[in-house]
Amino acid sequence: MAAWQQGNWQSGLHEHCKPTGAGEKTTMCLGVPGKVVGWIDRTPLFSKAEIEFEGVRKVCHMACVEDAEIGDYVIVHAGMAICRIDTQAALLQLDTLQRLFNSTGET
């Protein structure tokens, strides 16, 4: 049975892409959402923040998302935050999906 039928979506991250606290992972493709938990450096071009990914914290470069605030979610790719996640847009899309699919089959 395929993963989609079991509702068993394994982690969206590749095993070896999962960020580790050790900082030894050097794989380039991540593209993972994480939460900004603290700023380490806010010097433009050198800015860094601590980002939490499913419980694991990692220092990431923030030069392209310098306006992020603590508690924001960002997507990190190859050690660098590439965008802030737009909560409103996310909620809107999820809401549409809920309306379309959550009610069906339950009545």
């Binding site: 989609w4 509702g7 959402p33 979610y73 996310a90 379309l100 699919f101 959550n102 089959g105």
Partner: peptide
């Protein structure tokens, strides 16, 4: 919101498929 598990909801997946 974690922006991960929400996008792995089997109900949505089944519906979309």
């Amino acid at each position: 919101m974690k922006y991960l598990s929400e996008y792995r909801d089997p109900k949505h997946a089944h519906g979309l498929v």
